[in-house]
Design a binder for these strands. Structure first.
Length: 564
RNA sequence: GUUUCGGUAGCUCAGCUGGAUAGAGCAUUCGCCUUCUAAGCGAACGGUCGGGGGUUCGAAUCCCUCCCGAAACGCCA
């Protein structure tokens, strides 16, 4: 049931010749204060239309609007406030959820269209940082949201597995590294070598030359260089897999930068055929003046290709391979310019699908107010954050629920859940300064709060012996605490739609928090298991809540322990 | 300097396409476990919505301008 639509139709019945249904729907609003009813219609626009005082219009119109979902109407000044029929609406909404369970809120906007999502994309030989976490969890949540509204997401891990840094790394390894250390702790050791290289290079600039030389060797297929590269890549991937496993995220493709090595010359020829390339200071560029953008650098003055070249190759490959309906890039906002250029170049190539490419930017994570830098060894290691969160979750369990079975598993779900939820709960463009205390929190607007809320609800169902419900029974409720929950359940499809339209997982996270808050108030004030004529309906509501909280968290990539 | 984001309670943030007395969480203080998990609930405290103009019946929200912060700005990705 969509009661907003029903109310709009009821109003439209009275205003047929004066206002479109859509317009009415647009004007309807949810009052901020409970004493203003459940849904309100302001009469200001009508005042202009009828050249009358809006309060007077509201007064005249108010009583004539009727509908089975409206239980009463109250006019306050220029507002017509509607109170909905709680029993009718709650019964309908609860049954909708019970019928559809996790599928509730699914939409068919996507028509099954493929949507490659460029996400995570860590650099080989570097540890996963909090920054990669953002791309990973936002990308994952967006994939789930897209699937929920009918697209077929394709998760692509565009690994940073090529570039001059490998020349530097090979140089550093040959100078200061050994096989054993790399094997035992690959990322840590490779990072140490990488940082050492940059330290030493400050005093000894010839190192940079050596690094470039080794990269040239790698590009031209030098056996030793290629072997080292492959080895570094494998070891790194193994480490990344551990993290992805903890986050419960998998990919459909690991085609990274190296994958496009043999596909870039085609891009260059294509640009050339379209007469788009010009030479400037020895470099090949595409002029983008008419887009008010800097030129896109396609080839360096030494002939080497660049990031842009590679991303063009990737965009073309994805179009050919997936025939996507849209293509997303979950990449930090500091690269906005790059993606504007990318789209502009594709437009210059006359590809009409250029507009279906969307950069999904996100804010920067800083530490002590400063940008993180791998080169300077200034990193927040994701794995350490997850470990700390899990350890604290375990401590919490020991304190509060020491008899809980399988504590370690739950601690992992809660700890990781806290970190992931924290990353998704705010507008993705917000910057934030990393502190472990802030990320690992279990109270208030956090992942564990939502998980805990659901665990309490599950506990009620367990005690009542409810495992599943069929939607036939009359689950009508009318108390205020249930009503707040019912309204949030009702809003779910619209929430999903908004999350999709804005590519914004935080909209789902906020819904989860609101629903959890509403349920906790209900829980504190309404006894579910007591014998009461409404007992079955209350259990049905609790069941509906567990389903939607679980679905909210599933979309965000947060697990849901039944007990904690 | 140019462009793009941002400035709302002590801190972190909501506030949907302008609407009725600006909301949460954290922190602080206080109350609630003989009743379904207190990772909870309730209460108190806390705001010139960066400043100034403008549009409007109505502006935290839209426009202009100024101040402050962050990021990007041709051979890194």
């Amino acid at each position: 049931m969509d009661y907003r639509q029903l109310v709009a139709e009821a109003i439209h019945n009275e205003l047929k010749d004066h206002m479109e249904l859509n317009e009415i729907n647009r004007l309807l609003e949810r009052p901020k204060h409970a004493e203003h009813g459940d849904i309100a219609f302001p009469a200001f626009q009508l005042a202009r239309l009828f050249r009358k005082n809006p309060a007077q219009i509201a007064q005249e119109l108010g009583d004539s609007i009727t509908s089975p979902v409206i239980s009463s109407t109250q006019v306050i000044g220029p507002y017509i406030n509607f109170y909905l029929n709680k029993k009718t609406v709650s019964q309908s909404v609860i049954n909708d959820v019970i019928k559809e369970k996790g599928h509730y809120g699914e939409l068919s906007i996507g028509n099954g269209g493929n949507v490659p999502i460029d996400m995570s994309s860590p650099n080989i030989a570097k540890p996963m940082s909090m920054g990669h976490l953002r791309s990973t969890v936002i990308g994952n949540a967006l994939s789930n949201i897209l699937a929920k509204v009918g697209f077929s997401p394709i998760r692509i891990n565009h690994l940073g597995d090529w570039g001059t840094q490998f020349g530097k790394l090979i140089t550093a390894y040959k100078k200061w590294g050994n096989e054993e250390d790399v094997r035992s702790e690959p990322i840590k050791e490779l990072l140490r070598l990488y940082v050492k290289f940059h330290d030493e290079a400050e005093d000894d600039p010839t190192l940079e030359d050596e690094g470039r030389a080794w990269f040239r060797e790698l590009e031209s297929g030098n056996e030793e260089a290629v072997a080292l590269w492959k080895w570094f890549r494998e070891e790194s991937l193994k480490e990344f897999e551990k993290v992805y496993e903890r986050l419960n995220i998998s990919f459909d493709s690991y085609n990274g930068e190296a994958f496009y090595n043999d596909k870039m010359s085609d891009v260059v020829s294509l640009l050339d055929e379209h007469k788009l390339l010009t030479v400037d200071q020895g470099a090949h560029i595409v002029d983008l003046d008419k887009y008010d953008l800097n030129p896109a650098l396609i080839k360096k003055s030494d002939g080497a290709t660049l990031y842009m070249t590679r991303d063009l190759a990737a965009a073309l490959y994805r179009k050919d391979n997936y025939d996507f309906s849209q293509s997303l890039y979950v990449v930090g906002q500091e690269q906005s310019n790059h993606f504007k250029q990318l789209k502009a170049v594709l437009k210059e190539l006359d590809f009409d699908w250029a507009d279906s490419i969307h950069h999904i930017p996100f804010g920067l994570i800083t530490k002590d107010g400063k940008k993180l830098s791998t080169r300077k060894g200034k990193v927040v290691l994701l794995e350490e954050v997850l470990n700390e969160a899990t350890a604290q979750a375990l401590q919490q369990i020991e304190d509060k629920n020491p008899n809980l079975p399988d504590k370690e598993t739950v601690a992992e779900q809660v700890g990781v859940g806290a970190v992931v939820f924290h990353d998704l709960k705010n507008d993705r463009l917000n910057n934030f300064d990393f502190t472990i205390e802030e990320v690992v929190q279990f109270e208030g607007e956090t992942g564990p709060y939502v998980q805990y809320t659901r665990a309490r609800a599950m506990s009620i169902l367990r005690k009542a012996g409810v495992e599943s419900l069929s939607p036939s029974e009359p689950f009508a409720l009318s108390d205020d605490y249930s009503w707040e929950v019912v309204k949030l359940l009702h809003d779910y499809p619209d929430t999903v739609r908004r999350a999709y339209e804005n590519y914004e997982p935080s909209i789902i996270a906020k819904h989860a928090i609101q629903l959890a808050q509403a349920f906790n108030k209900f829980y504190a004030n309404v006894r579910v298991l007591d014998e009461d004529p409404e007992k079955d309906a209350r259990l049905a509501l609790v069941f509906a809540i567990t389903e939607i909280l679980k679905e909210d968290l599933r979309i965000l990539g947060v697990e849901t322990p039944d007990e904690m």
